[in-house]
Design a protein around this nucleic acid. Structure first.
Lengths: 280, 280
DNA sequence: TTGCGTGTGAAGATCCTGTGACCGGGCCGC
DNA sequence: GCGGCCCGGTCACAGGATCTTCACACGCAA
């Protein structure tokens, strides 16, 4: 299974309803100059699939905004005298950003000051990478929980428009009348260009492993094709790969597939993959 | 509105904005048996005007819910063997509660475990009361940050007017006579164009996680529909998305038999160029 | 051609939601 | 203090909508 698939699976429980959110990689920046520390952290975060950016000195707040971070780890020692002001500015300007101070020995007063200025947590170095990651996760978790639900971008492929916010797909203004499960499968398929095996589809939509010989996915694909054909007769959306699975790709019917044309048709709002987490 | 109605709102998204503005005291519970620790903390929190409740042993999750806490501090040592399960249960059931573990010396693995189970922070005793308070504040701050910007303006949708300042909705000058909960749900729904899952609604109105199989949301939606229909019979406001949840969108009743023709007839609505689906 | 994987239609089984009735607790007036 | 009312919350039932399963037809590869 792809790492991406694993991400989506994490924490699904009640089905794919809330899976979209966990979809994209977490973006983290660390302002620190300790190569060993960075190395350890980097290894660990790589394994987790995070997107780590190491910074050896303070960057402007605007630059931080541009990075669309989920979290920021700061070693105040690196910043020198202006560190408190910097911390305050960052926290004030990016209230949605999880800020963790991770620095050498400090006094209670310093830690209190840092937290009061808006830091979410204070770790004292040396510290275990795993623990730091947990603290970061906790901060992000807390931030996310209270965020307004992400606005899911609608995407257009071929002649249809998929609207996750309405749990529905449309063609020419008319609803396809998909059921919840049908929509989830269509949505899943439409987010990937590659062939998805049945087991994969099942796991990601149903939330648990597919029983051997289960034909549910086939049946739903049939229903989907039916509704897609009814709403958009000129196009083929779901392709069967014999012995493998299904692949989503809008293609005009009739003549053989014209890759050029289809590529263009897919240009919709695809870039929503990297929907930002913060950025107020 | 009854004074009790206000209380009910504590710790939920829509109502919380009110709360903070009204400068409500923060409610904190501490599960700990160290009298000295409690004394120091108590003194400090008194000065800050917090509402502190000391507990010498674990209480049921339901009891915690009833306390309407903003934060909970736990000394795992007090709980004994079942402490991890307890922590997990509390964090799972009360996702909006700030949970801080404050206990004696521990291993990295223990801290990691606690944080992974949902704790927001881990403090090691002995610790300075001031620092603990800052950590609690940081956790609560994160919890609330996004609730503040709520604008309590009255909005009109379809034939009804929602007035958050009066905790009531009106149609043609007449009150709908909504109860506090009913209003909460209507207000929440009306602020979003997308489909809201029951769990989401529950969590944001009740302030804690919905128990599996709880039908409260459905029941309140029924009551709401009843009152909405009585006050504005020509319109449909709350739409059911089977297997997903509810969506708010004012729509005229009646002549929507022909989806094609109705496309233009959607006058009063404020959004969605798309036809509605799955109207309950 | 055989063997297996896939498309298709339909019939239950299952799940989901609407609904009315009911219950307990808090609040108010008496 | 007492009784009634209002409100939030639970329960069980009924009707639909949806899902799963099954049998069979069809197509692909060897």
């Amino acid at each position: 299974m792809s790492p991406e698939a694993r991400d989506v699976l994490a924490g699904n429980a009640a089905g794919a309803a809330n899976q979209q959110r966990a979809n994209h990689r977490l973006r983290l920046a660390v302002i620190d100059r300790d190569p060993g520390f960075m190395q350890v952290l980097s290894n660990r975060l790589d394994a987790l699939g995070w997107d780590l950016r190491g910074l050896s000195s303070a960057v402007t707040v605007d630059a931080l905004v541009a990075m669309r971070l989920n979290a920021l780890v700061i070693d105040l020692a690196v910043l020198g005298p202006g560190s408190w002001e910097y911390l305050e500015r960052v926290c004030g300007r990016l209230p949605g950003l999880a800020v963790i101070v991770c620095t050498g020995p400090s006094s209670v007063a310093q830690r209190v000051r840092g937290l009061r200025l808006g830091a979410d947590a204070w770790m004292t170095k040396p510290c275990h990478a795993e623990e730091l990651i947990c603290v970061i996760e906790a901060a992000i978790r807390r931030h996310r929980r209270n965020e307004m639900p992400q606005i899911e971008e609608s995407t257009s492929v071929g002649q249809i428009t998929i609207r996750p916010d309405l749990y529905q797909a449309y063609a020419g203004g008319a609803s396809l009348e998909l059921t919840a499960r049908e929509f989830e499968i269509l949505h899943l398929l439409s987010q990937s260009d590659r062939v998805l095996r049945r087991e994969e589809i099942y796991e990601r939509v149903w939330g648990y492993a597919m029983a051997h010989g289960d034909r549910s996915v086939d049946v739903f694909v049939r229903k989907l094709r039916q509704k897609l054909r009814a709403a958009s007769p000129e196009w083929n959306y779901i392709h069967t790969h014999f012995g493998v699975g299904y692949r989503f790709a809008p293609e005009r019917d009739g003549g053989e597939a014209t890759p050029d044309a289809t590529e263009d048709a897919r240009s919709g709002a695809r870039e929503s993959e990297f929907a930002p987490a913060l950025v107020g």
